[in-house]
């Protein structure tokens, strides 16, 4: 799960976008296996499992352990994928670095 929006107005939750290794969808962002990151299988970043993650538990070594800061250019690619998600008015939103 990558934090894609810190949600400063929300004291309880940030928004996460999941990386999945099964059930890829055409709109997902491909994410190959990488030995330098905790990506042991080929996978995809998907909008399907966007959801809230509790800020209070973030970093808890058991319940929500911190894994890694995504290195560039992957970090920007993942955040841009989130920002480019289809939106209510069917427009493509702004892109750019987070």
């Amino acid at each position: 799960m990558a934090c894609v929006a810190e949600q400063p107005k929300d004291p309880a939750a940030w928004k996460g976008m999941a990386r999945v290794s099964t059930g890829a969808r055409p709109e997902d962002l491909e994410s190959p296996q990488r030995s330098d990151l905790p990506f042991t299988k080929d996978g995809h970043w998907t909008y399907r499992y966007i959801r809230s993650v509790k800020k209070a538990l973030t970093g808890d070594p058991v319940l929500c352990p911190f894994q890694v800061t995504l290195p560039e250019p992957l970090r920007t690619e993942v955040l841009d994928h989130y920002k480019n998600r289809p939106r209510a008015d069917a427009t493509t939103p702004k892109t750019g670095s987070h």
Binding site: D10, K15, R87, A88, D89
Partner: peptide, 26 residues
Amino acid sequence: PTRETGVGDAVLHRRLGHLLAPRLMV
């Protein structure tokens, strides 16, 4: 809106009507 969530179509039960203009949501 800060708690936006992905939901599978199988969970959609009943449309209750129009709530928000898409432009307002954006």
